[in-house]
Design a binder for these strands. Sequence first.
DNA 1: CAGGCAAAAATTGTATACAATCCGGATTCG
DNA 2: CGAATCCGGATTGTATACAATTTTTGCCTG
Lengths: 229, 229
Amino acid sequence: MPLLTEPKTATVEEIVGQLTEAVHEHRLQPGAKLREDEVCEIFGVSRTIVRQALRSMEFEGLLTIEKNRGAFVSKPTLKEAREVFQARALIEPSTARAAADRANAEDIVLLEHHIEQEHAALDRGEAGLALKLSGDFHLEIARMADQQTIEQFLRQLVSRSSLVIALYWRRRNALCESNAHHALVDALRKGDGDNAEELMKGHLLDIFSQLDLRERQEATTSLKDALRR
Amino acid sequence: MPLLTEPKTATVEEIVGQLTEAVHEHRLQPGAKLREDEVCEIFGVSRTIVRQALRSMEFEGLLTIEKNRGAFVSKPTLKEAREVFQARALIEPSTARAAADRANAEDIVLLEHHIEQEHAALDRGEAGLALKLSGDFHLEIARMADQQTIEQFLRQLVSRSSLVIALYWRRRNALCESNAHHALVDALRKGDGDNAEELMKGHLLDIFSQLDLRERQEATTSLKDALRR
DNA sequence: CAGGCAAAAATTGTATACAATCCGGATTCG
DNA sequence: CGAATCCGGATTGTATACAATTTTTGCCTG
């Protein structure tokens, strides 16, 4: 399995990239522990480098580092989950509008290619990959808007969205993706900012509505609790 | 002068806190270099700790670390400067609205106290301190809105705003601060979300308009270039 | 046999040693 | 005299050694 196998001496960025991808594609689930030595061996570097990588990912919100206990893939709470999508709802519509004003033919082709890959991944049953591509799609739009500061924030939000979806997505099977992205690209192609803004707003609401954000028991981490009736 | 003098063994957070404060108050100017050994001696810790602190501040956008060259207080470009205030204009008005809905008497007292300190600092001629307090004021409002994700982003934006102001503020002397904060607190006290939102929007535009964001020459760092006619 | 205690192993946190790179000044050559 | 080059010191980057903490394991006792 060519998963996280790098021969030797990777940079911090490469490690962050591969680990981030693994989390985005749900190959690493929320709660999973990343032992430093293990990561060291996989990438063939010293703990100095690995610790830098883990710390970066903590800043992104992807990992939570507990003192003296280690780095774990973050498990957003319900409140955090809501906040992530509230923040996206605040940021992304206006970003889509800006993108509509600036998108050129090249950008549109890129986005369409993105959607193709996304559908292909879904057809192959690779839901994790499709999810990551979907996130990248949103980031591409932010990039087109030429707002690096916002893009940087959105990167964090998309990362966290991936965690939220891992924890709170309703049906494990049907990962929708209707044709919201298609419609968005159409609006961008026409330079229709109003429509792009509205479509983005609706799209985010749609995703949000498919999350199960009701109060629930903390996932019982203790075997004892899990077995008592 | 009790500036950055800590006796011994500080934590990463303490170092980040003190250095951040120094940047926010313009005691450390954009472009200033932070040598690792120097910071080590000041705080009485090893480079391991200092490097963690510097890296944190790089993520906040406060420092820029150039490979093999060191950590410098960031110098936002014109584009970045504009983006920072565009992002704030996008985020803060709705945050002010949310704060108006949630603010209790205690919060209002806190904010008023904040404004007092700000004016006192201005009267004493401590413009840097006043600026930092002004940033904290905005962060307090975000905290009241109970949106930690947004608050986290705003923290970065306020940090960068401090750098932008250091670089692009028009008149070095009169650091305005009219009574915009007073008006905002009034709206919050009354729970008037609409007004709070509008006031915040106007306040940010006001700050933005006092920046000198025209294209300009890169400050010539070379004496030779400065002398040739 | 359950529960608690203690030692050992495993893991993370910090300091230090060593390697790589950069910077400034002196030297040499055109 | 000016420019390029090379060297030594200074500074940052990485690996490793050691300390502190947690987790596991095994033993002992009630």
